[in-house]
Nucleic acid binder design. Structure first.
Lengths: 132, 132
DNA sequence: TTGATCACTAACAATTTTGTTAGTTATTGT
DNA sequence: ACAATAACTAACAAAATTGTTAGTGATCAA
């Protein structure tokens, strides 16, 4: 009886529809990997050399540590980045490194950025040249 | 007093952070435009000629009418598509058409699709060739 | 006249995502 | 002895997204 209830939750319409879309096309799983709050900005920041937890916090001053850790873990789960402990550091340092998968994503994000800029409603705060 | 409460809701941390990211880089607004459930699949389907409400329903059998209508309206709000009434049809037919902005998005979605396929964990259900 | 199609909308409920708070471990600097 | 830094985790609350239900109006076909 309890299992029935649990299965309900694991098989909510929401989850079923997500799965359906994943099976329709990899496009949908690709988008779900990058669409969390902060996620693409984290990937882009790491690609620019901000590969430490505290460097990312500096880049994204409004993010809380718990949220940053969670987003990083999800990116790791999707094999977009890996964690590497930096030896001989106290406290132990951790460097985040994009995988090949993550690195291949960056130029696509740059294109999305350009697309966004090309059709931005109003004032672009950043410069009109390509990189974010 | 009531306004104070409303302002609270309009300025939730969530909304503030979203706005912050929009100002950091257009990448973030671009991703927010395409990251709703069904959205990129709808854009892709329209680009393939499924430009009517009922054709999209056929393509996406699990979507409810209310949800489809909502996603279409959001895509319209972001100027990715426009609605066109088809004259001399009963009941009145509506065609969805990608704007230039929407059409420019399609090749980027195809690249995301390819990226997803290239690094898919396991079995690809669709063929390995490019279009979804 | 009953049912079907087309293209929706509004109100509400379920689910998921995001943010907050309060911890942890280990070390260095004052 | 005390605060600071680095890099987290768990539990919970707030907010946003997604899904459900029940409607709308106009027209045609049986």
């Amino acid at each position: 009886m309890i299992n029935v209830l649990i299965m309900r939750k694991e098989q909510s319409s929401n989850a079923i529809n997500e799965q359906f879309l994943f099976e329709v096309c990899e496009l949908n799983s690709a988008i779900s990997m990058i669409s969390g709050r902060w996620k693409s900005q984290i990937v882009y920041s790491i690609s620019q050399g901000n590969n430490r937890f505290h460097l990312l916090q500096k880049e994204l001053p409004n993010i809380s540590e718990a949220v940053l850790a969670r987003q990083l873990k999800e990116l790791e789960t999707h094999a977009i980045l890996v964690k590497q402990e930096i030896p001989n550091t106290t406290p132990i340092g951790v460097a985040y490194k994009l995988t090949n998968k993550g690195a291949d994503l960056v130029p696509i994000l740059e294109q999305l950025c350009d697309w966004g800029k090309a059709y931005a409603a109003g004032k672009a705060i950043t410069s009109p040249t390509s990189p974010c």
